[in-house]
Amino acid sequence: MKILVPVKRVIDYNLKPRVKPDGSGIDLANTKMSMNPFDEIAVEEAIRLKEKGVATEVVAVSIGPAKAQETLRTALAMGADRAVLVETDEDIEPLAVAKILKAIAEEEGPGIVMLGKQAIDDDSNQTGQMLAALMGRPQGTFASKVEVEGDNVSVTREVDGGLETVKLSLPAIVTTDLRLNEPRYASLPNIMKAKKKPLDTKSPADYGVDCAPRLTTLKVEEPPVRQAGEMVGSVDELVAKLKEKGVVA
């Protein structure tokens, strides 16, 4: 069984994004970019399934600028077998990403497409669900445990009320949550090896997908800043302040 892992190049999660003064977006010039953290978890899970003998091949896909090659090389260094870059300088919305992924999945025929639950830049949390709808496949979103059992995959999901387990018929779409695994660091030899692994470059047009955006961003602003309040010197002082504010009886 093949596993397809879509990985997105995003701002590094340790950095605080800067809103452009003209309100047109986020200033990403000279900003450290990394693989979306949920996608690292997805790559890790796919590799573990391969190591367990459940999967035979792990293919990483990214849709984005030429630099997204670096993100794909990271996936290859972690242990993915090959990669596909769908190169574009446009911002591609989740619906169009899902359409491109559908076209690739139809070519590749993976048993599982393993995505992140959310990209930490657009915070959309949509792509996996959309891909599942477009392909008419089941979806196991926000996964904290994935077990392939014959023709099915059992997915434990992090939901508001606790942990829900569902059984999906394969092929299926899975999106990862934080507790699924702890991604490995690529070793130096594996980083060297990754440079020789195959990486195909394509364009959205190769898949015949119309990527025209459906949403127009009218402006991007900083959220209202919260002023730091005061430091209190003791628990007594804290209690007094809270009573004064009327938030405790």
Partner: peptide, 29 residues
């Protein structure tokens, strides 16, 4: 194309929503 996690309704088809972990608020139409 879904509009995720709206914070306000600004017009018949425009909304604000948080991006980048709420470090920015986008108005989208």
């Amino acid at each position: 194309m879904q509009v995720s996690d709206i914070l306000s309704v600004e017009g018949p088809k425009s909304f604000t929503r948080p991006i980048y972990a709420g470090n920015a608020i986008a108005t989208v139409e």
